[in-house]
Write a protein that binds this DNA or RNA. Structure first.
Length: 833
DNA sequence: GAGTTTGAAACT
DNA sequence: CAGTTTCAAACTC
């Protein structure tokens, strides 16, 4: 590799200029050096010859995302090609360092080829700010935080070969363009996967995805198939990116052409991707909350329409859309908007993760879980990329199946994943096919649950207009099979319902908000298997208000904490707490754990105890406490590689939170998730860009979602999901993670809510328990660079986490509108009790 | 299925 | 904020 100095400053030379270079001796020399043969197939790339992104100055790798937007598709594609070539060059060696080096080398070579040597690749590679290498490293660090994470590792030879074989795209032009771009100083951007790459580059896309997911892949072992945990990926990749990838084709081709974004359509298309899954045996583990949710809603609506009969359970269709337990006026929601998962069952516990909802490994998904997940699979000639992003509030899933032969892209929707954490969200319909669907048999039906998985209430005196009523609390209409009496929670009494709801909210703005705040999404193995989603437990999730159990010792469902599968916190006023998910006072330990690995010891003991307590859940605890590195239950891939067969299903417990967030990922995505998940750092860096890209795509929905996510990335980024696991070996400070996730969460989510909410104080109060947790950092010294304030930050972050994130976080929601709604409404006729 | 227990929600 | 009442789910038999 040439030293940067040797390489001349980047120039804006045009591709035309570079052309001559190929013939030059230097070029030949370089070619010889590089194992890779320049691809010269007819160029498929859609080039924007005239558009040369100006040289970018990379102050820091993190800026990359923003810069990407500037990247032209063509350039990006070309870069992709190059990357592929470079990858090819790397054969057996998977030493990370070597790979990177090789990659760089190859790139450099390619650059050199461009005899112009104007902006040599070297710069990219070596330039402090924008070098490719750095970028890659950064990416790696950021995304996986796994030092081992290597660029090359993501792609397998077979894939590479396939890609090369299949990629007719790289024509001389492409190469030249590539060079040109390199020269022009695109450099840093190359790195990371230009979210917006266009179609042609499905391969490229795949690569990108793979790159991000490489860590996962490694974990999984290298097979032809690459499976990436959504959560992991999600963390690594910005939700937006994920979306982008998926819909890339759509965006670029269709949307770009039309100039319109058809978010919903895209999503729908994306959803179809499940098929691809099945057919290809692709292993995908994604939290597809949004989709699930969307599906659920869709199913319901469909059901309504199709049946013409009263659905067993109905959302408040017209005026209200249930979002995270809240009813939002439909009109406020765009079709494109992804609805947050309805908040959980009666106790609102459902949205635990949503928490990830908005995810949050460290994220609070106050919104349901947020997850962003991307999975890329290469199967023979086909390349699939699957990405899902879920927010607590929104889900997006897209799957692209690329078949090189015809370059046709097939979008399949798969999305049956139900939202985790929300019992009510349990998909009823699951009419969607897909591996993602959890087997119905696995769903645990409560006696109070209807066939569709939604709870049925049995109210006799509350008229189903109080929070006593699970249906009402969940923001849904009572179903015919409810046993309630004098029920006013029906479409016929829509106004009453709304008024009552408003009234309740005026009293407690978060009355309909998820009761459980998820800090970390955790999934027990059983859940991953789909055996018992109900066991889905956010490791760090806690009940916002805490319980007051006196006799049940928090060991029965009387206890909301227990019911939500979360541990009690200091905020609980329970007596004799023996909550198997975490007793009062233990939460701090968990936090410590999160704060630093150092705390692991403490947690270990704790975990051991818990394991004994509940076998089914013990595993979960074990994961959480025992293995700090495995904070991300959401990424079964790592933990449960064997479950791959289950595919997405295994991953995402659809039933719960993600039946809420979980998948949350949801991410759990679930879900931070969203579900949603995310790598915090990586996501952060990337997200913005992806947003931009999405804009490119014109997909309003997706774009908006992405943007929203980026804005409120909080959840997802913070999502505890996968990244944590990856961080294990990495030097990436958890702190950073928290910072991203939590800080974001705090900043983005909470403030809005608080602002919006008429009674912020109440909110605080509700969260007060969490605040207590804010306990100061545990003194473990951090390796983190910014150790001094790290603890404080962490504590602060936690606190923020505690703050409930609500549906409003999602772009679609007008939280303000809803939340702020004045109580002016006259007394409900219902209120009478 | 009826009755009891329990704790959250609602009320004062 | 605390105490009481109301309520419906969870639980027991």
């Amino acid at each position: 590799m040439d030293s940067p100095e040797s390489s001349p400053p980047a120039s804006t030379s045009n591709a035309s200029e570079t052309a001559p270079v190929e013939d030059s001796p230097v070029f030949s020399y370089i070619s010889n050096l590089s194992p890779l043969q320049p691809v010269k197939s007819s160029s498929v790339t859609q080039g924007f010859p005239g558009l040369n992104s100006p040289p970018l100055v990379f102050a820091s790798p993190q800026l990359i995302p923003h810069k990407r937007a500037q990247f032209s598709r063509t350039s990006f594609d070309k870069l992709q090609v190059r990357l592929e070539d470079s990858k090819n060059s790397v054969t057996t060696d998977k030493g990370h360092g070597e790979q990177n080096i090789q990659l760089n080398t190859s790139i450099a070579a390619s650059t050199e080829k461009s005899s112009d040597s104007n902006s040599s690749v070297d710069e990219l590679i070596q330039s402090p700010s924008g070098s490719c290498e750095q970028v890659l490293e950064d990416i790696v660090n950021v995304d996986s935080s796994d030092p081992n994470f290597s660029f090359d590792s993501t792609i397998k030879k077979s894939e590479r070969n396939d890609q090369l074989a299949n990629a007719p795209t790289c024509s001389t032009e492409t190469v030249e363009n590539f060079r040109h771009e390199l020269n022009s100083g695109i450099t840093g951007e190359l790195a990371v996967t230009h979210p917006f790459t266009c179609k042609e580059t499905e391969d490229a896309q795949t690569e990108l995805i793979l790159i991000n997911a490489s860590a996962s892949e490694k974990a999984m072992g290298q097979g032809d198939e690459v499976s990436v945990n959504c959560s992991t990926v999600g963390t690594e990749l910005p939700a937006n990116n994920a979306v982008v990838y998926r819909s890339e084709d759509n965006f670029m081709t269709e949307n770009a052409k039309t100039g319109q974004a058809a978010p919903l359509d895209q999503s729908s298309h994306l959803l179809t991707g499940s098929k691809a899954f099945q057919n290809r045996g692709v292993r995908r583990r994604c939290l597809q909350f949004e989709n699930a949710q969307h599906n659920i809603i869709s199913n319901r609506l469909a059901q309504d329409t199709s049946d013409g009969e009263k659905p067993k359970t109905r959302f408040l269709e017209t005026p209200l859309m249930p979002i995270d337990g809240k009813l939002y006026p439909q009109n406020t929601l765009n079709s494109s908007i992804k609805l947050p998962k309805p908040s959980g069952f009666g106790l609102h516990l459902n949205s635990i993760l949503n928490t990830v909802q908005a995810g949050s490994a460290a994220t609070i998904n106050v919104k349901t879980a947020q997850w962003d997940c991307v999975s890329a699979t290469t199967d023979g000639n086909t390349h699939e990329t699957h990405a899902c992003a879920s927010d607590g509030s929104s889900l997006s899933l897209a799957t692209n199946v690329v078949e090189p032969d015809n370059n046709s892209v097939t979008l399949n929707s798969n999305s049956n994943q139900s939202i985790l954490g929300n019992k009510r969200n349990t998909e009823k319909g699951s009419g969607l096919e897909g591996t993602n669907n959890l087997s119905p048999k696995k769903k645990r039906m409560n006696t109070t649950e209807s066939d569709d998985g939604y709870k049925r209430c049995n109210c006799k005196r509350s008229k189903c207009l109080k929070l006593y009523c699970d249906c009402f609390a969940a923001g849904i209409y009572c179903a015919d099979d409810c046993s309630c009496q004098e029920c006013f929670n029906r479409p016929d009494y829509e106004e009453t319902v709304i008024e009552t709801r408003q009234k309740i909210e005026s009293r407690d703005p978060f009355a309909f908000a998820p009761r459980v705040v998820q800090h970390i999404i955790e999934q027990s193995p059983s859940v991953s298997r789909g055996e018992d989603r109900s066991n889905f437990t956010p490791a760090s999730a806690r009940h916002k208000k805490g319980c007051k159990c006196k006799k049940s010792m928090c060991l029965k469902k009387y206890c909301e904490c227990y019911q939500a599968n979360v541990g009690c916190s200091d905020g609980c006023r329970c007596e004799g707490c023996k909550n198997v998910f975490g007793q009062k006072g233990e939460y701090g330990m968990a936090k410590v754990f999160l704060a630093g690995e150092d705390s692991q010891e403490t947690t270990d003991d704790l975990s051991a105890e818990k394991c004994e307590i509940d076998a089914s859940r013990s595993h979960t605890y074990h994961i959480e406490f025992v293995n700090p590195n495995n904070l991300t239950p959401l990424t079964p891939a790592f933990q449960f590689p064997n479950h791959e067969k289950d595919g997405s299903a295994a991953w995402f417990p659809s039933g719960k939170h993600f039946q809420s967030p979980e998948s949350g990922l949801t991410y759990a995505s679930p879900y931070a998730m969203s579900s949603a998940s995310h790598n915090i750092s990586a996501n952060n860096a990337v997200i913005p860009e992806s947003s931009k890209e999405s804009r490119h795509g014109n997909g309003n929905t997706v774009d908006e979602l992405s943007a929203a996510r980026s804005r409120s990335s909080l959840v997802w980024q913070g999502s505890p999901i996968t990244p944590m696991a990856e961080f294990s070996g990495s030097k990436v400070p958890q702190e950073d993670v928290f910072e991203f996730g939590l800080s974001n969460t705090v900043q983005d989510d909470t403030p809005e809510i608080l602002k919006d909410s008429p009674t912020p104080l109440n909110t605080v109060k509700a969260n007060s328990p969490n605040r207590k947790r804010v306990s100061p950092p545990h003194g473990q010294p951090h390796e983190h660079t910014s150790s001094s304030s790290a603890d404080l930050r962490i504590a602060r972050k936690f606190i923020l986490k505690a703050v409930p994130s609500f549906p409003p976080l999602t772009p679609c929601i007008d939280s303000k509108t809803l939340a702020v709604q004045p109580d002016s409404s006259p007394e409900n006729r219902d209120d009478n009790k």
